[in-house]
Amino acid sequence: MPSTTAGPVALVVGASRGIGRQIAIDLAKNGYAVVVAAKSTTPQAELDKLSPFPPDPNSSQSTITTVTREITLAGGEATAIPVDTTNYESIQRLIAKTIETYARLDVLVYNAGAIYWAPVARTPMKRFQLMQRVNVEGLYGAVQEALSHLKKREGKKEGGRIIVVSPPIYSRFFRGKTAYAIGKVGMSVLVKGLGMDFEREGLVADGMAVSAVWPAVAIESAATEQFTRKDPSYASDLRKPSILSDAVLAMLRAPPSVVNGQLELDEDFLRKHAGVTDFSKYSVVPGASPRRIMPAELPDLTVKEQDDEGMMADSSKL
């Protein structure tokens, strides 16, 4: 039987550790029932033996099972549902199980990601394929399956939100990691294009919006841990994942027209739309001033002929 939760429901894909874990925990603290989704789980027998608990949030011991227990021990509502984002049928089962459990879906956060930074000549085809399947194809599948449940319908005051962890589009991002950039920028293209679909279909007026968020400063995570192991001083250039989580919450509170189709940076969005001026609490090393890794100004992707649609065609109707 579906849960009787009266609050909104959020699905966080890629929530086993790091940024995704923090987003799931903070959504639960703010009244959301959270579906914690990723590939890794912990058997009950092992879960009961984990010490300390919770485990290191950037380690392999942190799974959707441990994150769900963290949330429920703190008084929140959460359900762990495993998913393989390279498998569309697994994504379909995830969405179906979410609806079976809570009978609704209000927020989809897609944080799943595969990473391999190297020049094209040193990026094997298997690595390239994995990144595209996890990053852009996984996102596309999750959106396809979730859309009908996110739309406004009887019993829902407004439409749902989609937030994607993907970057603004600018040329420097491609350098030295082209294969990775193809997938991540592809995710951002989906945000821009789907946002235009929402506008065209009048869904923004119903409360729907799709947005992307990306860190302005490197975040403490499993990905950055490799650098701090080599050089512990690198930690002074890191921020806690709570800054990106706070940005997600701020985006959910913002009017749909403000965030729809936007590719935002966590720090810049919090400064402009949440009134945050002091970011020191997010520094991993107290008193440090982490180096910003994203440009201060980003290119405008629109053109003067933006409103000229030419001979628009809809293949689904042909």
Rank of each mutant, 00 (worst) to 15 (best):
A38L: 04
K126Q: 12
G14D: 00
E46P: 09
F174T: 11
I25R: 12
V259D: 02
S245Q: 01
V189G: 07
S257L: 07
A10W: 00
H149A: 03
V210I: 15
T41F: 10
V191A: 05
P119D: 10
G159P: 05
A80Q: 01
L265N: 02
M294Y: 01
Y102M: 00
L265T: 00
T42A: 05
E100F: 00
V143Y: 02
Y180Q: 01
Q226W: 11
V67E: 00
M196I: 10
S316P: 00
P57V: 04
V34C: 06
L139A: 03
A112D: 00
A218V: 11
P2R: 03
F174W: 15
L190A: 04
I71H: 03
I25A: 11
W214G: 03
R133E: 15
P299D: 00
W214L: 07
A179M: 15
T42R: 01
I219C: 08
P241E: 01
E201C: 10
S3L: 08
Q44W: 06
V109L: 13
T86K: 10
A142G: 05
V34R: 00
I71C: 01
K317L: 15
F198V: 03
A181I: 14
Y88R: 13
H149G: 01
V165D: 04
N87Q: 13
R93I: 09
K240F: 04
R292H: 08
A33E: 02
E264M: 14
V259G: 08
A103R: 01
K151D: 07
F53G: 03
K304M: 10
L27N: 01
V134N: 02
R17W: 05
E70S: 06
G287L: 08
Y140K: 14
K29G: 05
K126R: 11
V35K: 04
R253E: 14
V165A: 09
M196Q: 15
Y140Q: 09
T65A: 11
P286D: 10
S211L: 04
P167K: 01
M208S: 11
M312P: 14
L11E: 00
H273L: 10
S233N: 13
Q262F: 02
N30L: 07
D106T: 08
N87Y: 06
G202C: 12
P57G: 08
K184F: 04
L265K: 02
K272D: 15
I163F: 06
V109P: 00
R161A: 07
A118Y: 08
G202W: 14
R17Y: 07
D84C: 09
G18I: 00
D308L: 15
V191H: 04
I219F: 05
S257E: 14
P54R: 08
M251T: 01
L130S: 06
A216S: 15
P124C: 09
Q262L: 08
V143A: 07
T66M: 07
G20C: 12
K29M: 10
A24T: 02
L105G: 01
D106A: 10
V164A: 07
G261C: 09
T72R: 13
D266F: 03
Q22N: 15
S236Q: 15
K184H: 05
I95E: 01
R93S: 11
V259L: 12
A74Q: 13
R292P: 02
